[in-house]
Design a protein around this nucleic acid. Sequence first.
RNA 1: CGGGGCGUGGCGCAGCCUGGUAGCGCACCUGCUUUGGGAGCAGGGAGUCGAAGGUUCAAAUCCUUUCGCCCCGACCA
Length: 569
Amino acid sequence: MQYSKLLLPTLKEDPAEAEVVSHKLMFRSGLIRKLAAGIYTWMPAGLRSLRKVEQIVREEMDRAGAQEVLMPAVQPAELWEESGRWDYYGKELLRFRDRHGRECCMGPTHEEVITDLVRREVHSYRQMPINLYQIQTKFRDEIRPRFGVMRGREFIMKDAYSFDTDEAGAEDSYRKMHEAYTRIFERCGLNFVAVEADSGAIGGSFSHEFMVLAESGEDDIAACTCGYGANTEKAEIKIASEQVTGDAPPMEKVMTPEQRTIEEVSAFMGVTPNEVAKTLIFETDKGTVAICLRGDHEANPAKVKNMLGANTAELAEEATVREVTGAPVGFAGPAGIGCPVYLDNALKGVASFVSGANEADAHYKNMVVGRDFTPAGWADLRMMEKGDPCPRCGEPVDVKRGIEVGHIFKLGVKYSEAMKANFLDRDGKEKPCVMGCYGIGVGRTMAAAIEQNYDDNGIIWPVPLAPWEVVILPLMDKEGRTDAEAAKLCEALEKAGIEVLVDDRDERPGVKFKDADLLGIPLRITLGARGLAEGIAELKERASGDEHKIALDETVKWATDWVLERRIL
RNA sequence: CGGGGCGUGGCGCAGCCUGGUAGCGCACCUGCUUUGGGAGCAGGGAGUCGAAGGUUCAAAUCCUUUCGCCCCGACCA
């Protein structure tokens, strides 16, 4: 491939709008261009990498016995009404009407479509297990798209759906996907972990997320040396559940004008934040509740939802807070509040604490559970933190940042029951299919690879994802020998099955070096007048920076071997 | 949606406070020189200053409205 004929526009400067490394580098190196918020065009070089991720995904899905299909992007509202998600899915679902006034949406996911397909075509246990997947454009009207293709509104996703006759079969399908995902991310050259996760809006009984470890990740994951890993919103916190008691003096009201935050209140009262209980008001579809946590802990809405069996749980508006507490925001407390109060288990370790008095500018001290108020219940309601005990082995966990590149769910019969995707079993009885669904963000995986592999000069592609494996830089010379050698070398390498980019542009050497680094091609071959005079090519590895002077007639073999060793199959 | 910020040649920005000629760097085109880490000189093309109203002799600049985009919070591959 000749650079001079490619649309590969590189930029010297970072785009003003980009924040994270992968977004900056994908933009600067000409891989993507933006059309609108969260909507991107894949440029030729970017598409090559994207296709490589897709191809790895495709090969591993096929290897796991899944069959590729391609479903429509536009979906009729009726299916969503049937599953119950037309009302439930919210504004993220882009809805519109066609010319006849029929309601439609852009598919954010395809459980409805696939379930419809399977209920029409699969009627017997003999046709299962079956796993169908596609690699297709999804649209989710995110409130705030960001980080380039990492959180776009339109994005490419691989989604797979398995159908089994029973639980055991479904678990086997799930395990196969877990294995396939592990292979996929290994082949992409990524450093990742699979962690237990909350199943959220998709629903279902359990799920795992595949997380690429990177500082810019949007998720916190708890990891333990014993092998346990979980999203911190999912991670179960097991602590001593014995209530600590002490001889606390009677509860006493203290005036605390303008002291609202935990820091302010604890400083004012002369206690540490873990002796203060913070009270948060949540509005849920099961009613308004108050959650009490130790002052230094963070509330976990996912656990609040799960405790109540609610679909939604959001921090309440100021008006609601005033209504239940009778005070401005900042003075809520468990005693005398106008809604049920649930306490986080960690408060069992606090004999008496400071908390809001549900009155402007006032807090109580020496507050004791049971004596001064009666909670509606105790539960694990907070985010796991670094140092909390591992639920499996009890050792302290570490917390790291991760990018969610894949998520697998065991769905059970949620959709098949709602949409009557039934089959006749061996015993002649009609039963709902047991489902699983499995997603991979294809573009996000590519961006995650960049987040994990870059330096000041640009991208450092893992060989399996690089748009080209080798770049040849013929430097200018008067006789034009370097161009001729480059063309010869390119042809020979391509014949050997290597993907080659020749920078045949009429540019100065510095420009070619900079662009080659920026684009992150794993192996660079420089052909200059100096080297040619000695009969050598200069090879440089992008990742390590190691340089090798190789005789011209051995270059093809050397480079081919180098690349083949690094392809992960 | 709440909070903060930005819209000026393709990209990155200055100019706006204190109205009066639209400017800089990169990129682009032509020529000459140069050629091992983003060259130099000369010449050139390209902007209804996001849009619409208003104030004014005069608006990129002041006022109003509106659209778009980015960043911080709640959602997710």
